[in-house]
Structures are given as C-alpha cells and as structure tokens.
Design a protein around this nucleic acid. Sequence first.
DNA 1: CACCGCATGTAACGTGTTACATGATTCA
DNA 2: TGAATCATGTAACACGTTACATGCGGTG
Lengths: 195, 195
Amino acid sequence: MSIRHSILALLRREPMHGYQLRAAFEASTGGTWPLNIGQIYTTLGRLERDGFVRPLPETESGQRPYLLTTAGESELVAWFDTPVERAGRPRDEMAIKLALALTTPKVDIPAVIQRQRTATMRVLQEYTRVKPAAECPEELPWLLVLDALLFQAEAEIRWLDHCEARLARHPVQHPAPPSGSTAPAPATVASVKRS
Amino acid sequence: MSIRHSILALLRREPMHGYQLRAAFEASTGGTWPLNIGQIYTTLGRLERDGFVRPLPETESGQRPYLLTTAGESELVAWFDTPVERAGRPRDEMAIKLALALTTPKVDIPAVIQRQRTATMRVLQEYTRVKPAAECPEELPWLLVLDALLFQAEAEIRWLDHCEARLARHPVQHPAPPSGSTAPAPATVASVKRS
DNA sequence: CACCGCATGTAACGTGTTACATGATTCA
DNA sequence: TGAATCATGTAACACGTTACATGCGGTG
C-alpha cells in the first residue's frame, strides 16, 4: 500500500509523469528501496481507475503527467492521519525462522543466530559509514530513513543477543521424533489482535 | 518466502497435511501472523511442482499428507544457513510516510509522529501485558517471536522520538510550490546496495 | 436436524518483481 | 553511427488476502 500513497503524496507537490515519480520517490528515500518503473505505470492505472488521479493531456514531448483529484487528496490525508498498524505488517522472516528452528530437527540454532548477527552488523556498519556523508537539510528525508534502518538493525542485534542468552540458559532439546497429535490449543496472543 | 520455507521446516518433523500445517505454524508463532488455509494448499502445490515435497497416498479419512523430499531438505538447509538480507526486506511504510511527509505540502508532521507513537505504545503495552502469561519451555518459540515484536516496537518509538527532536531543531519549511525540475541526482546510499 | 470443527480445494484480486518491446532525444 | 538516458508501456509470474464451495463427522 505504500507505493500507492507515495504516488499520491508526490502528486500533491505538482503534476508529474511516471518517470518523474520514480526519480522523486527514490530521491526522497535515498534509493533505499529501488522502485521498478513498470510498477509505477500499473499503479497509476489503478489509481486512475479508482478516481484518485487523472491524466493530463500529453505534452509535446510525449509525457503523460497525472493530476491529483480531490478524492485522491482525501485518500492521502487519510493515509497521513492513520498510524501504520503493527498487526498489518509483513511477517518478520527472521523471527519465523528462529521460531521454527526451535522445533525442527537437525538445526544448529546458535549458528543461525550467529550468522544473522554477523550479517546485520555488517550492514549496520555500512549504514553508519554512509550516514555522515549528508547533513544538509534537503537530504533530511532519507537521513531519517537511514536512521530507521539503523534503529531496526540495532534492535535485531539486541534481539539476537537476547535469544542467545535465553537459549544458553534453557538449552533446546529436540525431544524426539514426534509421535501423536500436533498443535495443542494455542491460547495465545489473540488478545493483541482483538484490541 | 517465509511460508514456503516454514512448510518445509514443519514437514521435516513429520509428514503433515494442509490443515495440520496451518495449526503447527500458528502454534509456533503464537498466532501472531494468522495464516490463511487457502495459501497452504497453493503453496504446497508450488512446492510439489518444484520437487520439494511429495504427496503421500490419501489416508482413509481423506487427508493428503505431504513428505519432504531430499531436494526440499537441501532447500530448507540453505534457508537456515543463509541470513535474512536487510536489503531484501519489505519497505518500511512508516519510514516512507515520514520521508514523503517532509516534502508534501499541508502535512502536520508532528501530529503524524505523535499518532504513530501513541499507536505503537499501545501495542507495546499489549505485548508486555500478554508476555508473562507463558514461561514454560514449550512456549519458548512464540515467546521469542513476541520479544522480536517488542524490540521492534521499542525501536520504532525511539526512532520517532529521534525524528521529533531533529525536526524540532531544524523545523521543516515547505519552501514553496515547486517550479522547475525534480530529483537532483541523488548520489545516495547506493554504496550500501553495492556491497 | 442444524450447527460446528475438520479438511480440501478454487477464484478473484492486489501487490511486487523481472524481463521484454518500443520509441525519442542527446552526446561522444 | 552507436550508446546512454528519458519515457511509456505489457507480460508473466510469485506471493498474499479474502471469499466462496464442498464434503465428512460429531454433538446439541
């Protein structure tokens, strides 16, 4: 959903065509998440279908700028007004991997943790190395993006350390090749989802 | 890609059929990421097509258990051996939202930050409230998942505070309705991607 | 009987990625 | 001339979500 709304946000600055939109998006995010040009056009098509943007007449040089409609403006405002739900986020692959490793035979869990930490620390160093390059105010957007990545990487490392410590205290026993039934009634975090 | 490999991991314990796989996955992750049953079957179909699983003959009660092949086992081992790349992760919607807010007219940025922090702190409280419920070792997998969510939420709050402070020092000026060209050659974080 | 839990699927849609095809302009 | 950049699109595919259809078995 982010790209949809990113396009709307960029079009609030001024009408733009597809190629411009891609450049503007990558400029704002510092190229952190490269954006395929094809997707811009398909997304623009859907946004037009939904009445959020409207194409302007083609320019003399063959460009098709798009204009933000009032409906699109409302949609954009709603986006900024609504916090991003944690429950709606994509699954955390590393958390899943570790959770499953605990109940999967023949997995060297400390090694899994160790490899992930090494990889994450390497990108963390890259981030901190690149970071001071820009401090001028117009680079501020992607500086904050970079900080977000930094904070997340740090959190992951802390989490990995935490897991390692826990597992050192309660070493995992893959008790046996399982026998009977699976999945004993979770009784779980459902309350979080309900709230 | 996580579900594909999760299924392979679960099948290493023992052959299972679709319905069982869903229950086992949600048991491991504590229901944090509910998994649609339909997707299990389509994914099983793709895994069979790729030679990673093989269906066993239907049981008397109409179940179709699947067996992990040796190719599937290799794929699974490769998954555990390879750290999750940060570059390949889904885009962080909140980071994008804030980055774009900085260059979008008529956005109350402090309010955006404030709302997000409130929402994230609420789920953080939920997590900490649910957490002590389970301490028995068989609940350990989803306890670690819960900790991952906790660490991430804390990191987001710290990041939001960080952004707020930065913006307080350098208040954003939406300088003017823009005029000429867009996207002045980023010269950005590309080095991170190259490495 | 009617409802619920188990169990297997299919269809439609949105989103994302990769790759390909096509032109216009610019510049060495 | 030939390559790079600008610019617009399409096709194929993977993945995820939601909803729907179907059948079996047990229980109130």
